[in-house]
């Protein structure tokens, strides 16, 4: 089983601060591994444990992202690929998908499955996975809760929907977008960390991919941000301290009547 794992480094969105001019303060915001990708990584590790094989983790990002790759290698992942080039900057999901799919084709053309997170917390587009699958012309399953069984080139997976789950049979090669699940993700052990220090992370640049500058980064992105702003909330913010008075119930009842949703 050859597994390509895609992970993304994202700013910690719970730690976002605003400048006085209502723009995002980017300096000093910590970068973390996208929380959903933790589960994609865990899924890969569990598959390797059961079925054997090899995992290669891919990330597209600035050179600092190699630290994050190192952390993942320490979990028992075999190879790391950093897809990095100044010309990749500003890529939207299409350009990102194009670059990552080209890198997988180049480095691991004989993959059986590709695992992605369902979405990344910075953009929350959930598009990159399907985009990679589409460009590689392989099947995809999104909202995957669990990968249940692999028999030859057939994989059974469970997909989570709003009202239930689907049991799905898929032919490999295929791509899966993994949801956050209940299981506790593995932690790196000391020999894993030592082993990871000795793994050579492969760097892939634009030149290696055979794509033109017009196909990647900001130039290769069909979409662009024309405006970014802070959302406005128009709510009244009346606060009633009812701990001592105990009048909370009455206030709510009056409000409900006032706005006319309940008579």
């Amino acid at each position: 089983m050859k597994i390509a794992l895609c992970v993304k480094q994202v700013p910690d969105t719970s730690d976002i601060k605003w400048t006085e001019n209502n723009t995002l303060q980017r300096e000093g915001v910590e970068s973390i591994l996208n929380p959903y990708d933790v589960y994609a990584a865990e899924t890969a590790l569990r598959l390797k444990k059961t079925y054997g094989g090899e995992i290669t983790v891919f990330t597209m990002g600035p050179s600092q992202a190699s630290n994050m790759l190192r952390d993942i290698l320490a979990l028992g992942v075999d190879n790391g690929v950093l897809i990095t080039d100044k010309k990749f900057a500003g890529a939207d999901t299409y350009a990102t998908g194009k670059t990552i799919s080209a890198a997988i084709k180049k480095v691991m053309p004989d993959f059986d499955i590709i695992l992605c997170g369902q979405f990344a917390i910075d953009g929350d587009t959930a598009q990159t996975g399907p985009c990679i699958a589409s460009l590689l012309n392989i099947p995809q399953v999104t909202y995957v809760k669990t990968i249940d069984e692999i028999k030859g080139n057939i994989i059974n997976v469970t997909k989570q929907l709003d009202d239930g789950v689907e049991i799905i049979k898929v032919h490999t090669p295929a791509l899966f977008c993994i949801l956050k699940s209940e299981f506790e993700p593995s932690r790196a052990l000391i020999n894993g960390i030592i082993k990871a220090q000795n793994i050579q992370i492969k760097t892939v640049t634009l030149e290696d991919l055979g794509l033109s500058t017009d196909e990647v980064g900001i130039k290769g992105s069909p979409t662009y941000v024309s405006k970014a702003f802070r959302p406005e909330f128009k709510h009244l913010k009346e606060k009633h301290n009812c701990v001592e008075t105990g009048t909370g119930a009455e206030i709510i009842l009056n409000k409900i009547k006032e706005i006319g949703v309940y008579k």
């Binding site: 999901t93 299409y94 598009q127 589409s134």
Partner: peptide, 20 residues
Amino acid sequence: NQGRDLAPRISSKLGTGLTA
């Protein structure tokens, strides 16, 4: 769920942009 699965598949094939 269906739309977010389908739309990027289509936009990538067409090489066009998609805002999620």
